[in-house]
């Protein structure tokens, strides 16, 4: 694992904080898109030599995570005319704070797990877990359906980062898993978002609160 690889991972982790700390949904989506682009570059740095399969994973990730899904979300955002996440269940400062704690815990937890010699000292495991936690935080504390989808994207990105460790050893699992999961899930969520909008003429999941005990 090279130095530039770890630098990209630091970038991925910083973008988590951008998503956690902003109320502007456009910024959220753009940060997730940029994270997608960074993730697309990562597989190219794992391999010493370039081969077409890695190229495919990189290109696919870049296209889906960096371009397709963000533009779908931006379009949904324009259609319903919402710009800001208002009154999330957890404030932005508190979110940042928890995100920081999560990153610290991820570093601690990763320190307790053994790594193969060729992965030693890399930031993959903490970056993966920190992104996963940030995504989970966004998913559970935001009210707007679009922001929740961004949270899900981050969560998926965390899984993808860990997959990089196994890209050479078991390419099938990583490629199929990450890309299929992401694309299909967001595709379906896009349809559901559409129906929510038609039904409630807003994308606020607070309105989805009829089913309770």
């Amino acid at each position: 694992m090279s130095r530039s690889f770890d630098l990209l991972l630091v970038g991925v982790m910083l973008l988590n904080f951008l998503v956690l700390g902003t109320s502007r949904i456009r910024v959220c989506i753009q940060a997730a898109a940029l994270q997608g682009v960074l993730l697309g570059l990562l597989p190219l740095l794992v391999h010493r030599s370039f081969d077409w399969r890695t190229g495919l994973v990189a290109a696919g990730t870049l296209a889906v995570k960096g371009l397709v899904i963000p533009s779908l979300l931006l379009k949904a955002m324009r259609d319903v005319q919402i710009r800001r996440e208002v009154e999330p269940h957890l404030g932005f400062v508190a979110s940042l704070f928890l995100g920081g704690i999560g990153t610290g815990l991820a570093l601690l937890f990763a320190g307790g797990l053994p790594l193969a010699p060729e992965h030693d000292g890399s930031l993959v495991v903490p970056a993966s877990l920190a992104t996963l936690l940030a995504g989970f935080l966004v998913l559970t504390t935001r009210r707007k359906a679009i922001t929740q989808v961004v949270g899900y994207l981050l969560l998926e990105n965390g899984v993808f980062v860990f997959g990089l460790l196994l890209l050479e050893a078991m390419p099938f699992l990583v490629e199929v898993g990450v890309l299929l999961d992401l694309f299909v899930a967001v595709f379906i969520m896009g349809i559901v978002l559409d129906h929510i909008r038609a039904e409630f003429s807003s994308l606020d999941t607070e309105r989805l609160a009829e089913l309770k005990e």
Binding site: A185, V192, H195, I196, T205, R207, L208, A209, L211
Partner: peptide, 14 residues
């Protein structure tokens, strides 16, 4: 296809 079922579907998928 009513508001209750879309809420249930959203939670289920999420």
């Amino acid at each position: 296809k009513n508001p209750r079922s879309i809420e249930a579907t959203w939670k289920y998928l999420m």
